[in-house]
Amino acid sequence: MSAGVLFDAPGPKARRRHLILTGVGVLVVLAIAWVIFQRLADKNQLTSAMWKPFLQSSTWTSYLLPGLWGTIKAALISILLAGLLGGLLALARMSEIGPLRWIASVWVEIFRAIPVLLMMLFSYGYLSTSNVVDSEVAPLYATVTGLVLYNSAVVCEVIRSGVDQLPKGQREAGLSIGLRPSETLRIVLLPQAITAMLPALISQLVVVLKDTALGYNVLYGELLYNGKTSSVGPANIVPTIFVIALIYILLNYSIGKIAEYVEGRLKRRGRTVADTGVVDGAAEPAAPGGTAV
């Protein structure tokens, strides 16, 4: 059910009321904006000195762009490794070999229930005390470790729910032409499930991108960390947070739009398994770990 059926087409009276409500809404937002603006001006946050650093190329070339690259690098490495590991886990979790299935299930349940930040802090603590890797790259390793462990579990569950939602006839057809169960899974079911769950997998990228900001706590030089560092000199944390937030929002919003576009395209071609909510994660079952938030 969409929102459109919740109300009748407005008549003259309702249209007047809507006009009033529109006015009220605009006024409330303007009032909030005004209060914030006043507060910012009061505390001298709107002076040109505060915002000037963003017009100088050095702010961008030495802090923000390397930070953005740090964010994108960690997200790309994590999503690739998590996709690979998650695919293998999904194969294991749906295999006929009992022990493989159990190991995969335990892995998924454990790493879905532990907060990503705890895993990052732990791997950072471990890496920085044991000298396994250079202390320079320890933050990157820690960030990626946390993200990969968590997201491998999520990707596994997304793929599995995709396979679960395929029509029963697909598996039966595979088996009846003489494929072994593992072949049926690999040749018939998985390609369809992955195609159908593509939008969910793409929107998982948004989650990964946002979660790279957790690397701030293990001193990883991503956008937030670098941005904060850049604000120390000119003491302009407020404009900096504003600019960084804008970059994150634009980046994630566009990825979300791509996921929506892919979902719409798959739906038009009848390739999707769930009718609604794949992108929102609403189709996922309840479990510790829950929807990717």
Partner: peptide, 19 residues
């Protein structure tokens, strides 16, 4: 679309410390 870390950091550094 905003990281939670940024929101929480901003609540301290912006909302409290500056505003």
């Amino acid at each position: 679309n905003t990281p939670l870390t940024l929101i929480i950091l901003a609540s301290n550094l912006v909302l409290w410390a500056k505003l």
